[in-house]
Every structure is written in structure tokens, then in C-alpha cells.
Nucleic acid binder design. Structure first.
Length: 425
RNA sequence: CGGGGUAUUGUGUAACGGUAGCACGAAUCGUUUGGGACGAUUUAGUCUCGGUUCAAAUCCGAGUACCCCGACCA
């Protein structure tokens, strides 16, 4: 991608309206644009990060046996009345259609997946299975805040699993805990993310959250010093010792919830009459689980976890590009060399995104009217993992300069060896 | 949903009730070119509605929007 063509305007002005670091960096770097409180557009740089996060999640969900679907955002009021959530869920967007019709905008999809699953479940032989989707969710938050960390419209992965027995749900639930940790590992935030006991809301006594520690977070968690399991402050009083290892030594930290999983049990299978015939011919309610992960919030969380005073430091797995090629000066020699490197790299790099072979991973700052300082400052802000500089100085040595965003060391690399080195980076 | 704050050009700010100004940005041209360089020219604004007044960015009332604290958070 030529930076001169990129639909993006990088700003050096810090807005007064931003408090959270991720909000400031993502806005100034041209990753997102705020339309109104709690509602954001994702620009090419930001959308690319979103897709990379999605694909990591998608890969892991598929490996966990999930099948991807896409359910409607627009949902009939009746289903929400049936579960009681038309009146009990205060963040539910309720909208009017023509005539007297009323609809809900999906904040979550139990009210859709349950009646849908009913059409496919008859016998114990149809169980277990799990389906998931990646989709925009709507929740009428009373107070949106902290940029994309808490919004009214956001991207979420939600998976639902269906089981014949509680034991089977328990087994799958534990498996998903491991899968989630693997996702956070691939996203580069595993070391700051804790499995957290939290309130189960209306479903069950407890649920589990995945909390990433950051000062920008709005939750407070108590991390067990012994086993590193955490407890959300909201249930700390009723759970004074670690539920995992019974230790009573904790460290208190601020955190943001990046995932939440529930054992739904029969909470939704009962109102929607979701039953199956067991081996003994008995009709039994299906046992359900659900597993959420906020994609846009994870994006903000990654920035909170990985930045310095100059800008974002994207983990390479989610970075919008993996190489930022910068040419300095406008001499023909530099321009030609940089252009050649750009086309060679673009061709070689291929794509780490399955099924999207044309995804371009090299951002080439070909702008001739920008000073070196400006280019470097902007490169630091948008945080692409590898920076390559081509200038008169480097060309004399048949080399380019290579710098990793998270390190200060600068290496001179022979142009001939560049592709090999980038590939191994 | 309770409380607080703010609202002047893209951003940050100034203007006693009396000519809306400055800086940055952006744009054009030229000079520059290894950490946000320089010159010239240009660009663009008083949140909305109502009231007071000869005169309102300024005073009054209502509304709206955004930010922050709290509560809430399938």
C-alpha cells in the first residue's frame, strides 16, 4: 500500500476529548473515527487490525469445533418477551418498524440461536455442537467511555454450544478456557490476561471473565498470588478466598474484560422448548453454554497493553502491515530503489490471512513532501513492527536500515538479503 | 440513570455588551530532506432555538452534543 494513497490522516494534535491512551493513539493514528459517543468507524488501518484479530479468533474457534454462521441483528420482539429480557435488559435497543411492529437490535443472540437450534436438534445423536458468529452488537450503554473500550455498537465473537449433559458442557467449557488463552497468546496479551471469577448474572451463580490488566480498565480484579486466577471485585466479598486454590493472598488491579463465558444450562432451552430424545427415549432439555469475546474492545486493549510515548507497538500477529518502508529524500536513485524493494517485498510477503492472498502487508511511505522527522514520528505512532529506511546514505552501502518498533537498535541490511531477513523476522 | 464539566475554523486558544484575532493544521508554489525544516500565498469558526439590548461569542432561558465521576453492565 502506498501511504500517499492511504485513506487516513495522521494527526499530531492530541484531542482534549480523549482520556484513554488507546483512544488517543487510535484516533490520531487514523485507525478509527468517532461518529458519536460510543460509535466508531474503522478506517483502513484499523479495519485491517480488526480482520487480523478476527482471523486469529476464527481459526481457534474452528479448531474448537465451532461452525461459523451469521445471524440477524434485527430481531423480533416476541423472542425477547419470551425470555423476559424485553423488559429486564436495560441496554436493549428497542426500535419501531412500520405499523405497530417493534424489534430488538441484537446485544447477544440467545434469542435467535435457541429457536434456530430447535430446528436441528431432535436426538442425542444431534449433540453436541457449537456455532459462532462475528458480528456487530448493539447495547445501549448508559455511558460509553474510553474510546473503543466501551461502545454502543461493537464487534463481538459469540459462540453457543449445545450439549446433552452437564458433564459434556463442563468438559467443553474447560476446553474453551484453554482455547481463549491461546487466542490471547496469539494476540500478544496473554501475560496480562487472567481467568476471573465473576457474577453469573441471571444465568448461574458465577461466570468466568477474561480480564486484561490495564489502568484504562473499568473493572477491579483480585489476582491470586499463588495460582494467578482472579476474582472480580463484584463478588470478592462473597468469595474471600481463591476459588481455584483457596489461597487468600491477592493483588488488586484495574482490568478490562476481554472475554466472558457462561454455562447457560437450560436458561434458554426451556423458554424456547429446546429438547432432545435421550438414549432411553426420555425427552430432556438441551444444556447450553455461550462464549463471548469483544473484538473491537480487544483491539483497544492491545493498544493499552502495547505502546510507548511515541505511539502504538502492534504485536506482529495483528499489525495492519508488517513492514513500513520509508524513503527519505526525493533523489531518483532513492525512489527507484525504494520502489523496487516495495514491489519485491509485496510479491514475496504473500499473506498471513488465509484466503486473502492479495492483502498487502507493506506500507510504503513514498511521500516526497514529508521530512524525515515527520515520517519517523508518524511511523512510530502507527506502530508497524518493522521499519525499513531507504536513503542516499544506505544506498551507498547497497543497504537499507532495519529497525524493530519495540527496539531502539538500528541495523544496516544488504538489500540482497532483505527479503530473507524479513521473512524470518 | 444521578452528579460534574465543556461548547469560538480540522486542532488548541483569545476577544470589557461595540471590527471575531493568534498559533498549529490543511491547501498551492518554491526552497529543503536522517527525528514533526523554512518562506510566500490561501483556507476555514462563535452548537441550536428563543429572550434582553441601538448592538450578543459575551447577559438570561430552554434544548442539544461531547468529556469525566458514580451507578448499571447479557
Amino acid at each position: 500500500m502506498l501511504q500517499s494513497n492511504l485513506f487516513c490522516k495522521i494527526s499530531k494534535d492530541k484531542s482534549q476529548d480523549t482520556e484513554a491512551i488507546s483512544h488517543d493513539l487510535l484516533t490520531r493514528g487514523g485507525f478509527v473515527d468517532q461518529l458519536m459517543a460510543g460509535v466508531y468507524s474503522f478506517l483502513p488501518l484499523g479495519f485491517s487490525v480488526v480482520r487480523n484479530i478476527e482471523n486469529i479468533i476464527r481459526k481457534n474457534m474452528n479448531e474448537a469445533g465451532g461452525q461459523e454462521v451469521l445471524m440477524p441483528v434485527l430481531q423480533p420482539k416476541e423472542n425477547w418477551v419470551k425470555t423476559g429480557r424485553w423488559t429486564s435488559m436495560d441496554v436493549l435497543f428497542q426500535i419501531n418498524g412500520s405499523g405497530d411492529k417493534e424489534y430488538a437490535l441484537g446485544p447477544t443472540h440467545e434469542e435467535v440461536i435457541s429457536p434456530l437450534a430447535k430446528k436441528f436438534i431432535f436426538s442425542y445423536r444431534d449433540l453436541p455442537f457449537s456455532v459462532y458468529q462475528i458480528q456487530t452488537k448493539f447495547r445501549d450503554e448508559l455511558r460509553a467511555k474510553s474510546g473503543i473500550l466501551r461502545t454502543r455498537e461493537f464487534l463481538m465473537k459469540d459462540m453457543y454450544s449445545f450439549h446433552a449433559t452437564q458433564e459434556d458442557l463442563d468438559k467443553y467449557y474447560d476446553k474453551i478456557v484453554k482455547v481463549y488463552f491461546n487466542i490471547f497468546k496469539e494476540l500478544g496479551i496473554r501475560n496480562k490476561t487472567y481467568l476471573t471469577f465473576a457474577s453469573g448474572g441471571t444465568f448461574s451463580r458465577y461466570s468466568h471473565e477474561f480480564q486484561m490488566t490495564t489502568d484504562a480498565g473499568e473493572d477491579t480484579i483480585y489476582i491470586c498470588n499463588k495460582c494467578k486466577t482472579a476474582i472480580n471485585k463484584e463478588i470478592k466479598a462473597e468469595t474471600p478466598v481463591c476459588p481455584a486454590c483457596s489461597s487468600d493472598s491477592f493483588e488488586e488491579k484495574k482490568a478490562v474484560e476481554v472475554g466472558n463465558i457462561f454455562k447457560l444450562g437450560t436458561k434458554y432451552s426451556l423458554p424456547f422448548d429446546l429438547k432432545f430424545k435421550d438414549k432411553d427415549g426420555q425427552e430432556k432439555p438441551v444444556i447450553m453454554g455461550c462464549y463471548g469475546m469483544g473484538i473491537s474492545r480487544v483491539m483497544g486493549a492491545i493498544v493499552e497493553a502495547s505502546h510507548d510515548e511515541r505511539g502504538i507497538i502492534w504485536p506482529k500477529e495483528v499489525a495492519p502491515f508488517n513492514v513500513h518502508l520509508i524513503s527519505l529524500g526525493d533523489s531518483d536513485k532513492v525512489k527507484k530503489t525504494a520502489a523496487k524493494i516495495y514491489s519485491d517485498l509485496s510479491r514475496e510477503a504473500g499473506s498471513r490471512v488465509a484466503g486473502n492472498k492479495n492483502d498487502i502487508q507493506v506500507l510504503y511511505d513514498n511521500r516526497e513532501d514529508k521530512s524525515a522527522g515527520e515520517k519517523f514520528a508518524e511511523a512510530d505512532l502507527i506502530g508497524i513492527p518493522l521499519r525499513i529506511v531507504v536513503s542516499e546514505k544506505t544506498i551507498v552501502k547497497n543497504s537499507v536500515e532495519l529497525k524493530e518498533r519495540n527496539k531502539s537498535a538500528v541495523k544496516l541490511i544488504k538489500i540482497k538479503q532483505l527479503i530473507k531477513i524479513i521473512k524470518n523476522a
